[in-house]
Structure formats: C-alpha cells, structure tokens
C-alpha cells in the first residue's frame, strides 16, 4: 500500500511542474484525436519508447551516476525473445515480454557482477564492449536469423490482435506504449524515493560514505542495473512487435546505446522529468531533420552533424542538461 502511495505521490514537486506535467499528459492522451500525419504518429511512438529507455537508463545512470553505454544489448534481448517466441511458437506478447525481461535481467546479473568492479570511463567502455560482443554473437546465430534478423509477417495474424500486439494502425501501438509510459513514470517516482533509490543517490555522492552507512555498494549497483535492464528489455519487446523487422545492426548498435544515454543527459540525468524532456526534444528533432535535410534536400549525414553539434554543445556548456538549467534559474530566483 505504501508503495502505491509513494508511486502516486508527486507532492514534492513545485506546483508549476505538476501543472505542466498534467497538460502534457492530457495532450498525450488525446493526441491521436488530432489526426496528424502518420509521420507525426510514428515520431510520437518513438518519443514514448525512448522516454522509457531513458527512464530505465536514468535509474542507474542518473540517480546512480554509472554511465552505461551498453543498453542496446538489452533492447536486443527483449526484441529477439519476443520475435523468436512469436514466430516459432506463436507465444503472445504478454507472455514473451516478461520472459524477455527475465532473460535480460539474468544477463545483466552475469555481466553486471564483474562490470561493477569498474568505475568511471572504464565502466562505460566495458559496457560498450559487452554490448558489441552480444551483437556479434547474434549476427552469426542462425536460430535468431543471424545478420538477416527476424521478420514478423503481419499477414499470418488478424489485426487488431491485442494478445500478440499485431496492429495495422499505429494508434493501437500508441496507446499501448503510452500505458507503459505512465507506468514507467510511476515506477521511477517510487524508485527515487525507495530505499534503493536513496542508497543509490548516496553512492553517487561518495562511495566510501555510502559503504560506512551499511550500503552494499556493489550489490546496490547490480540490482539497479537489473531494474534499468528490465525497462529497456520491455520496450525492446514492444519494438519487435511494432517494427516487426529486427536485425542486430539496427536493434543492437552502439548508436542506440548512446542515444539512450544522451537523451537522459540532455534532459537532465538524475531527475524524474529529465529523460522525458530529452526524448521530447531529441526524437522529433532527429526524425524531422532526417526527413527535411536528409531525405528532401539530399544532404546525407547532415541531420547527424546537427545532432552531433547539439551533443557537443550540451556537454560543454551545460552538462546537467535542460532540467539543470531550469533548476538553476529557479534557485537563482528563490535566493
């Protein structure tokens, strides 16, 4: 009961935040009624997916300060579990998704245990290395389609199929992921106030102090890493049903890992709204830049150049992200 109450309790935020959040939430709920283009719809789904990825990353990366650049491997585990189970054994999404999460969590324990002996850049690069190893393995593993990947062909099913999550119209996908999005917010809101959340923030502050406060630092990190993993794997499973065509090169690439970390940082790592703000800025920017400059103007790569410049500016000028700027302005006003 207390858990539920804490998850739904946002009272420690200023009222302005809650008003804005309520406005955004209601906009998200009625967004499909506006009948924007299908491109806008796809962008919104991407935004919600990446918000969730970012929320997952934020638990370990933001609250815990452990820069993880290997989240794509868990996207892959979730996506592949769901695809394989659906294609081979016709297992519905609602079963394969928790199975995928279990696999991902299991893998996160296996690699997390040695991984968290490392700190700082060493940790970050090692997460990249594990992610690339897994990607290389998937690229030669015939059972999961090797480098060709897997394709869920929608003709076999009768959309709208709510069990298998096979739909013709994007609006169904939109509401499914929106549901997860709200659940994710409640979960993180509970997490940040939970025992583990407090321990993790203390670890970020000073590991020796945390240790002498009775916190098993290594285990707290491994646990939180598993939580972050579960988030990412869930969205990976959704990704499989939504995109229907997955291959190691784009599901598990380093770019996905970096994008996840980047959005959380752009928005403001270690705050509840940060990853959502980051995804809200970056995803539309990225897809529209690609559409206008890449596809229409024929300038290959220019979208990524602009995107790179944004990364560079943020990291050099305000590493605490957009939320950091908001907080700073607030504190200046209150002083």
């Amino acid at each position: 009961m207390e858990v539920l109450r804490n998850a739904l309790d946002f009272s420690d935020f200023p009222r302005v935040d809650l008003c804005v959040a309520a406005l955004v939430a209601s906009f998200l709920l009625i967004f499909p009624l506006f009948h924007f283009s299908s491109f806008a719809m796809a962008t919104m789904i991407q935004f919600l997916m990446f918000s969730l990825y970012g929320m997952g990353w934020n638990t370990i990366g933001g609250y815990g300060g452990q820069v993880d650049l290997g989240k794509a491997q868990y996207v892959g585990i979730g996506a592949y579990t769901t695809s394989v189970m659906l294609i081979r054994w016709d297992v519905p999404f609602w079963v394969s998704m928790p199975v995928g999460m279990s696999f991902a969590v299991l893998w996160s324990f296996i690699i997390g245990y040695p991984l968290f002996r490392l700190k700082g850049h060493y940790f970050a690069i090692a997460t990249i290395a594990t992610s690339l190893v897994l990607k290389d393995l998937f690229e030669v593993w015939d059972f999961v389609g090797a480098a060709r990947g897997l394709e869920i062909s929608p003709i076999k099913y009768h959309p709208p199929d709510f069990l298998r999550l096979i739909f013709k119209e994007d609006v169904y996908y939109y509401y499914v992921i929106l549901g997860f999005f709200f659940l994710g917010i409640f979960y993180v809101n509970w997490f940040r106030k939970s025992r583990l959340g407090f321990q993790l923030r203390s670890i970020k502050d000073n590991e020796d102090v945390a240790r002498s406060l009775g916190i098993n630092v290594h285990w707290a990190k491994v646990k939180t890493y598993a939580i972050a993993t579960a988030f990412v794997s869930l969205v990976g499973s959704f990704h499989a049903c939504y995109i229907k065509n997955i291959e190691p090169e784009d599901t598990m690439s380093l770019d996905i890992s970096i994008l996840i970390a980047l959005m959380a940082m752009l928005g403001g790592a270690g705050s509840l709204w940060g990853p959502i703000i980051g995804a809200g800025v970056l995803i539309p920017l990225k897809s529209y830049l690609k559409e206008w400059l890449g596809a229409k103007a024929g300038l290959v790569g220019i979208d990524l150049i602009i995107y790179a410049v944004i990364i560079m500016l943020i990291s050099a000028v305000e590493p605490r992200g957009i939320w950091g700027i908001v907080e700073k302005a607030r504190r200046r006003r209150s002083v």
Binding site: E2, N6, K193, S194, R195, F198, Q199, R201, S202, K204, D205, N206, D208, V209, A210, S212, L213, G214, I215, G270
Partner: peptide, 28 residues
C-alpha cells in the same frame, strides 16, 4: 568523515534517511 564531500543533490533530511534506511525498508 573528516571531509564530507557532498556534491550531490540530497537534502539534509534525505541524507539522514539514507542512514535510517539501514534498519527499515519503509520510507515513512
């Protein structure tokens, strides 16, 4: 600790809560 390098964003009360969480799981 002699030098308490608190760089993070925990408030005083939250800091003390970190200690208290050793003996309880309940936030309240």
């Amino acid at each position: 600790f002699q030098v308490y390098a608190a760089t993070g964003d925990l408030t005083v009360e939250e800091n003390v809560m970190v200690g208290c969480f050793l003996r309880t799981r309940s936030r309240s």
